[in-house]
Computed example of a mutant assay.
Amino acid sequence: MSHTAHIPSHRKPRRNAPKTALRAGVAGGVLSTIAVAGAAGPAQAEPVTQTIEMPTITAGLSTAVAASAQATQQVAQDLQTQAQEDAAATTAAKTAKKAKAEAVRKAEAKKKAEAAAKAKAEAAAQRASRSAVRTTLSATSGSTAVASTASSSSSSATGSAASVIAFVKAQVGDAYVSGGTGPNSWDCSGLVQAAFRSVGVDLPRVSQAQSTAGTQVSLSNLQPGDILYWGGAGSAYHVGVYVGGGEFVGAQNSSTGVVQRPLSYDPPSGAVRVL
């Protein structure tokens, strides 16, 4: 007997061979699968490479988009700033125009107020002066003397005197304007000068000179066409024309204009005869 005959494994039947072959086949299949996977590896590497490159593309695009957004925002800000500047300029122009119009309105109102105040002051001065003259006349001769004088000098005018009277009566109702010489507005001396010029007689322009332009006559001997004056001879502040019937015509003031009134309305200081 062999010295190894007692080891059973050395004597096992060959029916175990198929298992060994099966194991070998399984191992081979596994190796084949690995080999196939290894062979397939290169085909799948391309998507991996593309995936790695994507972040670079996305980063560049994001930068471009961000730059575009920033530029758009800057343009919007510029447009908004321009719009605000335009609106401010428009508002400033409107404000300046309104302020100018208001300044012009105030200047015109001030000018009118000053003119009205001046006219009022002149009228007040005239009334005061006439009042003083009336007081003096009343103290010396009385108003009855003036009335009787008017009655005694009511004879009808003829010739040049009639023309002078017709001229001044035709202007009754015209406006009084300081410095006015017609044809629709007058001051007292301007009316008297124009009336006598209509009959070819040239008189001085102002009341003071007109009060000494002819022969002095008393108020008790008045004739139609005589020049009446208020104040002193050579310093008169007002003149008119005696039209007969105890009445006179004169450009009184801005409130009354040219009027025809009785001598008692505003008794004169004296008279001169030119015709």
Results as ranks from 00 to 15, higher is better:
P55F: 10
Q216G: 05
Q193W: 00
L79R: 13
D187C: 01
S131T: 15
V164E: 04
T72C: 02
W186G: 00
S178R: 00
S32I: 15
S189H: 06
T256M: 11
A195H: 02
A119I: 08
A37M: 15
V146C: 00
I7R: 09
V272C: 05
Q50Y: 10
V177C: 01
P268M: 03
R14N: 11
A139V: 05
E46P: 04
Q208E: 14
L219N: 02
A175E: 01
G38T: 10
R23I: 14
A43H: 03
A43F: 10
G250Y: 07
A147S: 14
A116I: 06
T81P: 02
A71K: 03
A213R: 00
S185A: 15
F167M: 03
V192M: 13
S148F: 15
L219H: 00
A147L: 09
A88C: 05
P47E: 06
A69N: 11
R127K: 15
Q208C: 10
S131L: 06
R127D: 10
A64Y: 13
Q252W: 04
K120Q: 14
G250W: 00
V146M: 11
A40Y: 06
Q44C: 07
G244Y: 04
T144K: 09
T72G: 13
Q208M: 08
A103D: 12
T149G: 14
L203V: 11
R15M: 03
Q77Y: 08
G180M: 02
T4I: 07
S218G: 11
V30S: 08
A67M: 05
I227G: 05
I7C: 03
P8H: 14
L275T: 11
T158V: 13
A121E: 14
S235C: 07
A93D: 14
C188D: 05
V217A: 05
P13Q: 05
G240V: 04
V36E: 08
A24T: 09
G214W: 02
A99I: 07
S155N: 07
Q84N: 12
T144V: 06
A96C: 08
G234D: 06
Y176M: 03
A116P: 01
A162G: 02
A195R: 09
G232E: 11
S218A: 07
R127P: 04
V172K: 08
T49M: 07
K98E: 13
S235Y: 10
G244L: 09
A116M: 10
S153L: 02
A39M: 12
V243T: 10
V258N: 01
V259W: 03
V172S: 09
P204G: 04
D226P: 02
D78S: 14
Y229H: 03
A66M: 09
S189R: 08
E122I: 06
S207K: 04
G60L: 09
V104G: 01
V249R: 02
A5V: 13
A101K: 08
K94P: 02
T136V: 11
A161Q: 08
W186N: 01
S154Q: 12
V259A: 05
G246N: 06
A92H: 09
R23H: 14
G60K: 07
V217C: 00
S269A: 15
K110D: 15
A271F: 12
V201D: 00
K106G: 00
A125Q: 10
A209T: 14
S138M: 08
A132H: 04
A124W: 13
Q74N: 13
K97W: 09
S2I: 08
L222W: 02
G182H: 07
